[in-house]
Design a binder for these strands. Structure first.
Lengths: 341, 341
DNA sequence: TTTATTTGCGCAATCGTTGTCGGTAACGTT
DNA sequence: AACGTTACCGACAACGATTGCGCAAATAAA
């Protein structure tokens, strides 16, 4: 059973294809009786408009592109979950691209998305991306909404977690539990989220009369075996840090592993808090304090914005930034400092 | 800058569209010199064939559909990672659908996929799915490869983990560490993976002269708060279980939480092993023994099979089953039984 | 009755690409 | 000189849907 087309209906009813098309779109210039016949026949033949033909015709492809650095990542898989949910609800399909954190693959992904004539793009920038010419080029064809890793050079709506507030809360919490030398392990310095978190961290320090010490802050793209050496470096400082604040899932887990490997007691020797979406955070040893980002909601919100632009044809979209609240979860890894020697 | 089309090249060179088309496809009936000109012009205009037009023409859409119950799931996000990687390498885009474990959304997803004229389908069945008519229907249009949750009623290649061996190894390991009353928490009984794991569990028991006790086996779709009561039920048995073997990520974590909440010592009172893809398994408290499935490899293998069928046009694909080895990771949660009272 | 106007529908172009067919030279063969 | 080959290229239709335009018939207004 092949998919029914307008032509099939037209043949069946001995009318022209154009009449069928108009009847289905409820055009005023079609006889109500004819409409009824066409509708009936369409449901009988289980007619569905061919999205490919529609795309070619140039109207809309009913498909969205999602470009993220990685799928196999707690944060992004949750975000995509939210995106797919809302998109599907509103009749759009989602095409996924991974950049694996490279600029090159990001460009390739955009090219693909363009070729597919997607109606819009949701993107979280790769860590290599520092220019946005490729995105501006894309923007001339379809609207973009950025989420999580966003660039301010690009005029689009942005949906992000409240990174400043989250980092501020985490840092302040560490200070209130008696920590004074707080190391911050974070990702590439040019990313918006890195800067915002760093700013929050710094603001909390200064609000609490602690000096900002840049030797305590480390940036990087930390592979599986790169966190250990870094932790060693930090621990060699005088005085050594008494707390670690990490900026991603990978870093939190890597740091936890490194600290445990080095037989440091958490939180007795150092405390640890992460910016993560680990659902198992409270099952870790020790239970990991975290700043949780509403990843699913960020996905939902981002795609909702995008679809509003697409459907209301607000081409000149308000490049507003939506900030979603983060939540501080205090667990064992940041208990009060043990002051007994 | 709009995307260049054949027409643009044709106009530029004052030749016909068909000639351009053939020149680019390196047809024998085009003058080498003309070909050169066309090629040069094509690269200059940055021409890319329009996949939409190609799809409409009926040849191939260069897109694959992936249908999974959930994206935000350690196992599936890793599998999709593998799928996307290989697909992208071989020039195919991936369209993702989530069924949220419902038959209805699975049918809807297949309909969408069909409308998009995808060249093939990778599917892991929803837990509600018991009939495969919708898949057979789909099969008449494009090839299917099943992975993980597969149905034997459907003649397609299948790529799965070695569930029997994995479950056997886990169970045997529990027995060798002194356990005798091994509970098995698993998912819906009609799923292939459930049955295979159950069979492996049972075989290991019987090989070791332990009776299979069906009151120790529980099936279900365990929501966030459903694991607790179940654990209570099992612990009320006489004698109570001294080990838990769970069949999924969610169950392993849920069970761990429930046991800890009830102040049972792991592994002193009970030991616990999961069938999971948790990357943080050895960071949990206690470090969780697991049977690890090669999710990424399963994804890679499945998509490779599918693309082979698509490209070699082996429509009558060998419905072979590829079994990928699992790995037993012994950690703290299944240490030797403590025999001191 | 003649002229407007409305109603209802079909024709044909369009989107980008490919396949079928046919045509025109230039050449070689008798 | 007449014919067949070969090499090369263009016109056209088709995929499925939308849309501007035109055309006929029916109705309304003159």
């Amino acid at each position: 059973m092949e998919a029914a087309t307008l032509k099939d209906i037209a043949r069946e009813l001995n009318i022209s294809v154009s009449t069928v098309s108009r009847a289905l779109r409820d055009s005023y210039e079609i006889n109500p009786e004819t409409k009824r016949l066409v509708m009936e026949c369409a449901t009988r033949l289980n007619y569905r408009p061919n999205p490919i033909a529609l795309s070619l015709k140039g109207s809309s492809s009913k498909a969205l592109a999602v470009v993220v650095p990685q799928i196999a990542n707690y944060y992004f898989s949750q975000a995509i979950n939210g995106i797919e949910e809302v998109a599907q609800q509103r009749g759009y399909d989602v095409i996924i691209f991974q950049t694996h954190e490279t600029y090159e693959r990001e460009v390739a992904a955009l090219r693909q998305a363009l070729a597919r004539r997607v109606d819009g793009l949701l993107i979280s920038l790769s860590s290599e991306t520092s220019t946005v010419a490729h995105l501006q080029e894309f923007q001339q064809h379809a609207p973009i909404v950025q989420f999580d890793r966003v660039s301010s050079q690009l005029a689009t709506p942005r949906v992000v977690a409240d990174n400043f507030a989250g980092a501020y809360a985490a840092t302040e919490h560490l200070i209130k539990t008696g920590r004074r030398r707080i190391a911050h392990l974070t990702i590439q310095p040019w990313l918006s989220i890195t800067q915002e978190r760093l700013a929050g961290y710094r603001a909390a320090l200064e609000q609490n009369c602690l000096a900002y010490d840049e030797t305590l802050v480390r940036f990087g793209t930390f592979g599986p075996n790169e966190v250990g050496p870094l932790v060693d470096e930090l621990l060699a400082l005088q005085p050594p840090p008494d707390a670690f604040f990490t900026a991603s899932d990978r870093l939190a887990v890597g740091c936890l592993a490194a600290l445990r490997q080095r037989r440091l007691r958490i939180p007795a020797d150092v405390s640890l808090i992460g910016f993560t979406n680990l659902t198992v955070a409270d099952m870790l040893a020790p239970a990991l304090s975290t700043v949780e980002q509403p990843a699913t909601d960020i996905g939902r919100e981002a795609v909702a914005r995008l679809l509003d632009i697409i459907e209301r044809k607000h081409r000149a979209a308000p490049p507003a930034t939506v900030t979603m609240p983060t939540a501080l979860h205090v667990r064992e890894s940041t208990s009060l400092m043990d002051l007994t020697p």
